[in-house]
Amino acid sequence: MKLILDNIIFSLQDAGGISNYWHQIIKRITNHAEFKTYLFDDSIKSTNVFRKELNLSNFERLGKSPGLVGRYTNPKMSQLNEKAIFHSSYYRYSKNPKHINISTVHDFTYEHFFSGIQLYAHTNQKRKALIQSDGIICVSENTKRDMLHFFPELSKKEITVIPHGVGKQFYEIEKSDLKSEKYFDGRPFILYVGDRKAVYKNFNLTVKASKISGLPLAIIGGNSLSEREQTFINIHLKKENFIHFSGVSNETLNDFYNKALCLVYPSSYEGFGLPLLEAQSAGCPVIAINSSSIPEVVGESGILLEEESPTLIAEEIKKLLITEYRDNFVKKGRENVKRFTWRNTFERTLEFYNQLHSQINK
């Protein structure tokens, strides 16, 4: 079977959940002789952290990823004019009628929270790619529901739900093996991981909950704190009660998960919500909002709140100071993450490839 993988995502972002997902697929393809794999990939050294981990020298290239300007173009693929699977990392499709197009849908944040030209450009590209797709992979049942809400014309497409996995780099560390750095003079602290800019991420709720609970806050990821963020945090927290690190390694992030009292993840919308599983893999309980895909990912293994309330978050944070209460959620989280592995994600993706390849005559 011939397989064409479009690495456009590595040209669009330096890191992120979609890049991680695509990296997990590609690195496993190398071990499967049943596929003759071709790539659309930029030969220039990429700044994407996941692309840097890949050795793609054994793959044949059909062309370069078009970059930011050409991201909305779709290749004609005349140089491989035979039956093949074309799977794009970000909403592109092959114009060659002999190719079987597959798209992975991660979320609908643009459709829910954006407007104007940004919304039009993104949604137009997404709709075109999905209409041209012979098969669609959704990362959660919630994403599938959103897709059929915004694009009901896709209901007759071949659609499968294949959740993400969690990497083995996130795990529980024996206390004696934890890094020697102590944060906040060894006091219990809460953790926030990921983007802060989007309104639906509700970062401000975490800051307010930190103040109410009296526990300091470690902020990991995203860009440097903006002047506006710094001002907001300073109003609520003393300088010694918060820290921020961006661009941390998985090793450092895992260390934070292991040391934190809990992960506070108050996002009101997620296509999947991978940090929740990363935290649970490292023995860190999670507090989140009971919305979008989060109940699918966490279920009863985490503390899910019905309201976006800093007071309720703070109350749950304080409960986790009770060892038996916290240990119960650590145990539940440990069991929950067993449902999500990248191997399972990859194997189910291969099954979908084979299903479409055998069903569709081109």
Rank of each mutant, 00 (worst) to 15 (best):
L3E: 07
I4H: 03
L5M: 11
F10T: 13
A15L: 04
G16M: 01
N20T: 06
W22D: 06
H23V: 13
K27Y: 02
R28I: 02
T30E: 10
N31V: 03
H32G: 00
A33Y: 08
E34M: 09
E34T: 03
F35G: 09
F35W: 06
D42Q: 09
I44A: 15
T47Q: 11
N48C: 07
F50L: 12
G63N: 09
K64M: 02
G67R: 04
G70Y: 02
T73I: 03
N74E: 03
P75L: 11
K76C: 03
K76D: 06
K76H: 09
E82G: 11
A84P: 05
Y90M: 11
Y93V: 00
N96Q: 08
H99Y: 01
H106D: 07
E111M: 02
E111P: 07
E111R: 08
Y120F: 10
A121F: 08
A121L: 15
A129S: 15
Q132H: 11
Q132L: 03
Q132C: 06
G135I: 00
G135V: 07
V139D: 01
T143I: 01
R145M: 11
R145A: 14
R145C: 08
D146V: 12
F151A: 05
P152T: 15
L154R: 05
V161T: 15
P163Y: 00
H164W: 02
Q169G: 10
Y171N: 13
Y171H: 15
E174T: 12
K179Q: 13
Y183G: 06
D185S: 14
G186S: 11
L191W: 13
Y192E: 09
V193T: 10
F203D: 05
L205D: 10
L205Y: 07
V207Y: 05
S210R: 12
K211C: 09
L217S: 11
A218V: 08
N223C: 06
L225R: 13
S226Y: 02
S226D: 10
E227H: 08
E229V: 12
H236W: 08
F245L: 14
V248W: 04
T252D: 07
D255Q: 14
F256T: 01
K259W: 03
Y265N: 07
Y269R: 04
L276N: 12
E278H: 04
A279I: 01
A279Q: 01
G283H: 04
C284S: 08
P285Y: 02
S291D: 12
S292N: 07
P295Y: 00
E296R: 10
E296V: 09
V297R: 13
G302S: 09
P310S: 06
T311D: 08
T311V: 15
E316N: 15
E316C: 05
I322D: 15
T323I: 14
Y325F: 14
F329D: 05
K332L: 15
E335N: 08
V337H: 04
K338T: 04
K338S: 01
R339G: 02
F340Q: 10
T345Y: 12
T345K: 10
L350Y: 07
Y353H: 08
Y353F: 10
K362V: 01
